[in-house]
């Protein structure tokens, strides 16, 4: 027959695109997400390899006096020294560990709280939802930073990790509310109704039907929480509310401010740690913009018109 259907036996080409799931392919192709990931991974490596990049003396660690006060950057001290003669480069490198681990640690606690409260509230509905929603809204409207400042006043010089914990306990409301509304949407969808009719237990529905369908929202809330914790922990340390002997970017900035670095124009004591906080915050925000654009293509900038 002439009209026989041609069956094309194309050999499937092995490309990156075929190997990755679609969302990850979208992520890899998004320039914002990739730039963010690159910056973030650089910092993760710096944090992991800190002892090799900047070996510490056995006594005194990164806070040990190793040079003259307020030395400008040179071959020996790449980022100069503080008023106490500490090596700014060493402080910044080792501060990376603190900031990232507090950020990701507390950020993870926050997102877990968000998931628990948000999904419970959205899925259970009724009185439970009313009460939890009220709680979320109250915590949302109470000014967060002053509350945390007051709490750290009571705790008296908490270390970075304690600050992270305080932040985790006080900052779950926003994410919880976002996840709650998404849960409501999914709960009313047909496949959940079907699962219910089929008699699946609630915990299975939540774990296998609802959670997988809001994974991108969970991830972006998680990243948002990490940024928030990193910035706020740095802020509190900067204010001198934390332990002044800790090695963290915020603490470096606290000492720079306290030692009149602005007045003496010792810019190298406050530019590098601040820039690191800014870069990490920026990279995570970029990743989140990327995720936003992948899940809502309309938002991309510079298209159409």
């Amino acid at each position: 027959m002439e009209n026989q259907v041609e069956i094309k036996t194309q050999r499937p080409r092995v490309t990156l695109r075929n190997l990755l799931p679609e969302w990850l392919w979208g992520f890899v192709r998004n320039p914002k997400a990739m730039l963010g990931t690159f910056i973030l991974l650089s910092f993760v490596f710096i944090g992991l390899l800190a002892p090799d990049i900047a070996p510490l003396p056995e006594r005194g660690g990164a806070n040990r006096m190793v040079g003259r006060p307020h030395q400008a950057p040179d071959d020996e001290f790449w980022f100069g020294t503080t008023r106490q003669g500490q090596d700014v480069f060493k402080q910044v490198v080792h501060g990376t560990r603190t900031s990232l681990s507090v950020g990701f640690g507390a950020g993870t606690i926050i997102i877990i709280l968000c998931i628990i409260v948000g999904i419970t509230s959205g899925y259970m509905g009724g009185l439970v939802d009313e009460l939890l929603s009220l709680l979320m809204n109250v915590f949302l409207v109470l000014p967060g930073l002053p509350l945390v400042i007051v709490i750290s006043g009571w705790v008296d010089q908490p270390g970075p990790y304690t600050i992270g914990l305080v932040l985790a306990v006080t900052s779950w409301a926003y994410g919880a509310r976002v996840l709650r509304s998404q849960t409501l949407v999914i709960r009313n969808s047909e496949f959940v109704a079907a699962a219910r009719v089929a008699g699946e237990p609630s915990w299975r529905i939540v774990l296998f039907e609802i959670l997988p369908n809001m994974i991108s929202l969970v991830v972006s809330s998680w990243i948002g929480a990490v940024v928030f914790v990193i910035l706020t922990e740095a802020t509190l340390s900067f204010l001198g509310l934390g332990n002044p002997n800790a090695v963290s970017w915020g603490t470096s900035l606290y000492w720079a401010q306290n030692n009149q670095a602005l007045l003496t124009r010792a810019w190298w004591t406050f530019v590098p740690p601040g820039l690191c906080i800014a870069l990490v915050g920026f990279s995570l925000t970029l990743i989140n913009y990327g995720i936003d654009e992948i899940s809502n293509p309309r938002l991309r900038s510079g298209e159409g018109g």
């Binding site: 802020t235 900067f238 602005l262 601040g274 906080i277 915050g281």
Partner: peptide
């Protein structure tokens, strides 16, 4: 503007002051 929003407030204040 969105880059600035990701920066720590106090650091921008410090840079501006400096």
């Amino acid at each position: 503007a969105s880059i600035l929003a990701a920066f720590p407030y106090f650091w921008i204040a410090m840079l501006a002051l400096y």
